[in-house]
Design a protein around this nucleic acid. Structure first.
Lengths: 193, 193
DNA sequence: GTCTATATGAAGATAGAC
DNA sequence: GTCTATCTTCATATAGAC
């Protein structure tokens, strides 16, 4: 039935545990037990607890960065572009709310080198938002005073989903994505076409 | 010079430490050392590390709840009301970004009883936002499809400030408050008066 | 690659002197 | 109310058998 390799089972177990209790409150015993293994088995597949976090964090950051870069490239219309970016980014945080919680909230537990790497991905994401908004302003379809500040506010809205979104709650990830995309267009004063 | 009681010095030190490293990564030695005391001194003034967190969390939650209840009561105009609520709430998270980080992100480290208490304060805050938006819709000055969802999105925007706001960054707390209040009015489709 | 057993270190909290 | 010293527990990670 379950043919998932031990290495992945451990990563999934770590996501669950880190999301529920946080990195520092999670024990390696908890992770290995959730994966159905002894405490020692973890170290056959992952060098350390931090390494496990890094793998989760790095993959998640690359995922989201690539996703919104693709959203950016998918259209040249500023309204469609911002809506698509924010729809995808918000929806991802709803669909993967547990994983995203680890990705977004456990950065300080990474080693300085690993933290530096993910900081780069985060800068990319912020730049995509800023560019998408700035272009709409330039083309006269958005009206925004503080472009970087508005970009951060939109990113905040999506990221903070991981703090409260419940898969069994009243909103589907799609519904959240559409609501948030609409809020983004309102936030930039988009002229409807 | 410094006439701050030991009890408060420890609370301030705990805020700093919890904000920088998180509750679980913070040691009681770290807290007492920051307050200029021995590890044992902490327990003269606070029953446990969790109790210290609870005192910080409870006070912060009551603070913000009372603040936005006052903002709600300060005017009956829906536009002014939502703008004031969101200005105050956002500004608070910028001014007290360290303390707010502890208040917002360490809830899961509280005991179930303490967590239950602060959950009540949080419900109050969400209700104020929902009511403020719903009234604007009823009076025909706001246009919102999903009132609770929009309320959560605005709260998210403000709370997420604690993840990135830097006191020495380009924006003053007042500037953030004004920007966010403006974004809130746009988000609800407010008709300018 | 999995296990049992354990080395090693550090954390929360307390004892008891001053 | 502060200190030094320490108890006790538990965590990460490793050793070595199978």
């Amino acid at each position: 039935m379950t043919d998932v390799p031990a290495r992945e089972r451990l990563m999934d177990a770590a996501v669950e545990a880190f999301a529920e209790r946080g990195f520092h409150a999670t024990t390696t015993r908890d992770i290995s037990t959730r994966a159905g293994m002894s405490p020692a088995a973890l170290y056959v597949h992952h060098a350390s607890k931090e390494q496990l976090l890094y793998e989760i964090s790095s993959a998640g950051h690359q995922n989201t960065r690539n996703m919104i870069l693709a959203a950016y490239a998918s259209t040249a219309d500023p309204v469609d572009r911002l809506a698509t970016i924010h729809f995808e980014f918000s929806k991802w945080h709803a669909v993967h709310s547990k994983r995203a919680r680890v990705v977004q909230y456990e950065i300080s537990a990474l080693t300085p080198e690993h933290r530096k790497e993910v900081a780069g991905y985060r800068r990319d994401i912020e730049r995509v938002y800023r560019d998408a908004i700035a272009e709409g302003v330039e083309k006269g379809v958005f009206e925004v005073d503080d472009v970087p500040g508005t970009a951060l506010a939109l990113i905040s809205m999506a990221i903070d989903l991981v703090r409260w979104y419940q898969p069994d709650g009243p909103r589907t990830p799609d519904a959240v994505g559409h609501l948030y995309a609409d809020l983004a267009l309102r936030a930039v004063g988009a002229t409807r076409s």
